[in-house]
Computed example of a mutant assay.
Amino acid sequence: MSKYCDGRWAIVGRYGSGGLALYNFDGAEWKLIPQDSEYESGFGPCYTERYLREMGVPNIVLTEGPNCNG
């Protein structure tokens, strides 16, 4: 399922799993953006705000995506 998609960035996950990942469309195909950290709770991989900002993601990705702060 897709939680967010603007044609360039997409937050997707498997329904009911709670796990989300970030994808970027490069003009030809969607590519998974590898997570750069892990939740302190041990829940799994996440993205740091700095990493996301360096990629230039829209602000909604910072609040709705699997970022390590939320």
Rank of each mutant, 00 (worst) to 15 (best):
S2G: 05
S2D: 05
S2Y: 07
Y4F: 13
C5E: 15
C5A: 09
C5P: 06
G7E: 12
R8G: 01
W9Q: 04
A10R: 14
I11N: 04
I11T: 01
I11W: 00
V12F: 01
G13M: 10
G13H: 00
G13V: 11
G13P: 11
R14V: 15
R14A: 08
R14F: 00
G16F: 02
G16W: 02
G19K: 10
A21S: 13
A21L: 06
A21T: 07
L22Q: 00
Y23R: 08
Y23G: 05
Y23Q: 13
N24K: 12
N24I: 13
N24T: 05
F25E: 14
F25V: 10
F25M: 11
D26H: 08
D26M: 04
G27P: 10
A28L: 05
A28P: 00
A28K: 12
E29F: 02
E29D: 04
E29S: 15
W30Y: 10
W30Q: 15
K31V: 01
K31H: 10
L32M: 05
I33Y: 01
I33C: 06
P34W: 05
P34G: 07
Q35I: 05
D36A: 15
S37F: 10
S37L: 10
S37Q: 08
S37Y: 07
Y39P: 09
E40I: 08
S41H: 07
G42W: 03
G42R: 04
G42M: 04
F43I: 02
G44C: 11
G44V: 12
P45Y: 05
P45A: 15
Y47P: 13
Y47G: 08
Y47R: 06
T48R: 09
T48K: 04
T48I: 07
E49G: 14
R50T: 14
R50N: 12
Y51N: 03
Y51Q: 06
L52N: 06
L52E: 01
R53P: 13
R53K: 15
R53F: 04
E54D: 15
M55L: 14
M55N: 02
G56W: 01
G56F: 08
V57M: 05
V57S: 03
V57Q: 00
P58D: 01
N59D: 15
N59T: 09
I60V: 15
V61R: 05
L62M: 12
L62K: 01
L62Q: 02
L62S: 01
T63W: 07
T63K: 08
E64D: 12
G65C: 12
C68Y: 00
C68K: 03
C68H: 02
N69D: 14
N69F: 13
G70F: 11
G70P: 10
